[in-house]
Design a protein around this nucleic acid. Structure first.
Lengths: 130, 130
DNA sequence: GTACAAGTTAGAGCGTACTCTAAGTCAAAT
DNA sequence: ATTTGACTTAGAGTACGCTCTAACTTGTAC
């Protein structure tokens, strides 16, 4: 089995996730992540769970959940199982926003398709004329 | 036929498009729109073409084309037919970005579906236990 | 022992896209 | 005549999400 390393340095996480070390520290500082365990020389050591969490918040951010909402979500997770239903509602809210965004993008793609086709025809016509 | 008004004031456009008067003036100021014709008292009078353009740039913005790119696009439109193929390329670039975004959103929606289901089960279980 | 690499912190700075303010104009209503 | 309301402008201010800087620490290599 191609076991992945047990612990990763911040630059390894940067490489794996595409989030910069700056951003990783920033997320931790503002409470988007629980404090990462430090090794002997005071360096962060990210474990499998940390990586999983980063993957999740990266997804939420890339789909435009606000930092503020993610902080709220992270706080709920920290509070444990009592907050499950609040967490569910928060994620369901994001689901709805994404479904709307999906529609907007699809409509825009269709508009772009139409425009690009029109442009192509104009390009073709201008060649014929000249 | 329910003919729509020939000319609209800025607040009517605000109402119809959802863009604030502030934003409409801002867009004009930065060159996202050609200068709107002014009526006698110096007020803007938006016509059908203006509305059409606003609809287009609203769509491009809502799907996260940057202001800078939209300024470029607007400038190309102003330059006329010689820029058709550059315009097409610009829109095709946005198409590709939107297709990627679509995938990201779909994947995230599926992740959210899974998480929400898990949460629901945990909520159900905690009811059974208590 | 000193240079280097890879981290650390607190805090400042920056780009983007609005969003708002202040002061003014103008026509219609009172 | 003056008040009201809907606009106008130039320019300042704000929210957000990073992104960078400066000064420092630590372990390893030479």
């Amino acid at each position: 089995m191609a076991e992945t390393k047990q612990h990763l340095t911040i630059s390894e996480v940067e490489e794996q996730t595409g989030l910069s070390a700056h951003t990783l520290r920033y997320y931790e500082r503002i409470g988007l992540m629980a404090p990462i365990t430090k090794g002997l020389r005071g360096h962060r050591r990210y474990d499998k769970d940390d990586l999983g969490w980063i993957t999740l918040i990266k997804r939420l951010r890339s789909t435009d959940m606000s930092i503020k909402e993610m902080q709220h979500f992270a706080e709920l997770v920290r509070q444990g199982d009592a907050t499950i239903s609040e967490r569910r509602k928060l994620l369901e809210k994001h689901q709805i926003e994404l479904q709307q965004k999906l529609v907007d993008i699809e409509e825009t793609l269709s508009l772009l398709d139409h425009k690009v086709t029109t442009y192509r025809n104009m390009e073709k016509d201008s060649k014929v004329k000249s």
